[in-house]
Design a protein around this nucleic acid. Structure first.
Length: 267
DNA sequence: ATGGCGGATCTTATCCGA
C-alpha cells in the first residue's frame, strides 16, 4: 500500500476545517502539511483532526497569520521548528516519519511572500524573503540535509516558465522575478534536490497551485502560479511514484482557499 | 486588470497575503 503526502496552504485552518476534513475523507493522505493556519497552537482544531484519524500532530502557530502544521495517520517523532532571520514567526516545522522505506525528515515551510515591490532596497518584505532564502541555502549545505529529506510548503516562488500563466508578464511580479527564481534554482541545485512534482509532470505543461481571489473567474481566466512544492533528496526521489495538484479544490465549497492541495505518492 | 478579494484582529479600520 503506497503512502501519500499532501501539502496545502489552507489560509485559516479554523475557517476551513470542514474543507480539510472533506479532503482527508476523500483522499486519505497519510500525512498532510498545512501552511497559513492563522491561529495559535491552542486554537488548532486538533480534536476534529484526531477524530478523523490524524492523531499525530506537530503544530507551530502564532496569532493571526502565518503558522504551519503537520497532521499524520503515521507516527511522527522528533518534532522541531526553527526561526529564520532572527524573527520569531512560525514558518517551519519538521518531523521524522516513515512512508514505508525507512524514516525520513519531513520539513514544512512557509517562505515569506515578499510584498509588492521586487526591490530589496525599498521593500523590507522582499529583503526578508531574499534573506530567508539565503539562510535556507546555508542550512541546506549542512550535514542535516545530506540524505533522507523531504521538504514541502508554500515557497511563494513559481520557478519555471510554465509555473505561471504568463512568463513574460510576470517577470517583474514578486514570485516570478529572476532574482527569486534564480535563488530557488540555486537552492534546488545544492543537494541536489528533486522537484517531485515536476519529476512526474513535464515542464512543458502549465501547472499551477494558486489562483488569486481577485480574479473574477479564476477557472476561465486561469491566471495561476505554482507556488507550492514538494522536494526530496536524491535517495528518496526514486520512491516517489506519482504527483498530482488538486485543482478542483480551488472551486470547492463557498469559501475555498486560494491554494489547492499538492499530493505525492511513495512506493 | 491578477490585485475590483479575503483572511484575522487592535473590527466598521488596518495589517497581512501574492
Amino acid at each position: 500500500m503506497p503512502a501519500t503526502l499532501a501539502t496545502w496552504n489552507i489560509n485559516s485552518v479554523r475557517l476551513r476545517i470542514d474543507l480539510v476534513l472533506d479532503f482527508l475523507a476523500e483522499y486519505r493522505p497519510d500525512v498532510l502539511c498545512l501552511q497559513e493556519i492563522k491561529c495559535q497552537n491552542d486554537q488548532f482544531p486538533q480534536k476534529e483532526l484526531a477524530e478523523a484519524g490524524y492523531a499525530h500532530q506537530a503544530v507551530h502557530g502564532q496569532k493571526g497569520y502565518h503558522g504551519v502544521a503537520i497532521v499524520s495517520r503515521l507516527p511522527i517523532a522528533e518534532t522541531t521548528s526553527r526561526s529564520f532571520c532572527d524573527i520569531p514567526d512560525s514558518r517551519h516545522v519538521s518531523v521524522r516519519v516513515d512512508f514505508g522505506r525507512g524514516p525520513v525528515t519531513l520539513h514544512n515551510f512557509y517562505i515569506p511572500a515578499g510584498g509588492d515591490e521586487p526591490d530589496p532596497e525599498i521593500n523590507p518584505k522582499f529583503r526578508h524573503k531574499l534573506a530567508f532564502l539565503a539562510e535556507l541555502k546555508d542550512w541546506f549545505d549542512t550535514e542535516d540535509f545530506v540524505s533522507r529529506q523531504v521538504i514541502v510548503g508554500d515557497f511563494n516562488i513559481a520557478p519555471h516558465e510554465n509555473d505561471v500563466w504568463s512568463h513574460r508578464q510576470l517577470l517583474k511580479v514578486v514570485s516570478h522575478t529572476p532574482v527569486e527564481t534564480d535563488a530557488l534554482d540555486d537552492l534546488l541545485a545544492r543537494r541536489p534536490w528533486t522537484d517531485l512534482v515536476r519529476q512526474h509532470i513535464p515542464l512543458t505543461q502549465k501547472l499551477f497551485s494558486w489562483w488569486s481571489y481577485r480574479s473574477k473567474d479564476w477557472d476561465a481566466a486561469d491566471k495561476g502560479r505554482r507556488l507550492d512544492h514538494v522536494w526530496s533528496t536524491g535517495d528518496v526521489a526514486p520512491y516517489c511514484s506519482g504527483a498530482e495538484i488538486l485543482r478542483a479544490f480551488r472551486g470547492r465549497g463557498d469559501k475555498p482557499s486560494d491554494h489547492v492541495p499538492v499530493m505525492v505518492r511513495f512506493g
